[in-house]
């Protein structure tokens, strides 16, 4: 298969030196085995996330439209598509412990543009709910400063505490 850099980018005029590779051979190769399944682990939190969000993570085919459109995508770690990939790989714990889920402002661009109908904003919200229900507030209303209280519109506090506080 891809034995050298030369064959990685073959000259189109060059006659093929090998027959086309069947993908099933590729997956069966002992060194590059890939398990194509959304059920690689039995992490119960994936089921919980899917139930709370009403989304099916296996629906995502990783096109990346969500991350491309996300206005916070450059600051969000992991960004939407990568977050969904973590869930597909059974790594829900990593997503629940991540910063990314706390940077989603629920603007819904990701879900609006998703060709597979997956709404990442709901997945992020389900993840936050799981963390918050463990009594871990992200924003403590008692720590809001006086100047911020004076200045920022009420709806921001209401929304922030709804999304980020126990």
């Amino acid at each position: 298969m891809l034995s050298s850099e030369a064959s990685r980018w073959p000259n189109v005029r060059q006659a093929p030196t090998q027959p086309p590779v069947c993908l099933t051979h590729c997956f069966a190769h002992p060194k590059i085995s890939v398990q194509v399944s959304s059920h690689v682990t039995e992490d119960p939190r994936l089921g919980q996330i899917e139930e709370l969000s009403g989304q099916t993570v296996a629906d995502c085919y990783q096109c990346g439209c969500c991350t491309a459109g996300c206005p916070i995508g450059t600051a969000m770690d992991p960004p939407p598509s990568k977050a969904i990939r973590l869930l597909q790989l059974g790594r829900a714990g990593e997503l629940l412990a991540s910063e990314g889920i706390w940077l989603c402002a629920s603007c819904l661009v990701c879900g609006t543009r998703c060709p597979r109908g997956v709404d990442y904003a709901r997945i992020a919200e389900a993840c936050r709910a799981i963390v918050l229900r463990g009594r871990h507030s992200r924003v403590d209303p008692d720590t809001v400063t006086e100047p911020d209280l004076e200045e920022i519109p009420q709806q921001a506090f209401m929304a922030s505490f709804r999304k980020f506080s126990v």
Binding site: P71, I72, L103, A105, S106, C107, V109, R138, V139, V144, D148, I152, Q155, A156, F157, M158, A159, S160, K163, F164
Partner: peptide, 10 residues
Amino acid sequence: ECCGGYLVVN
């Protein structure tokens, strides 16, 4: 496009 909304709080 989103203005950042309530993220302004934290």
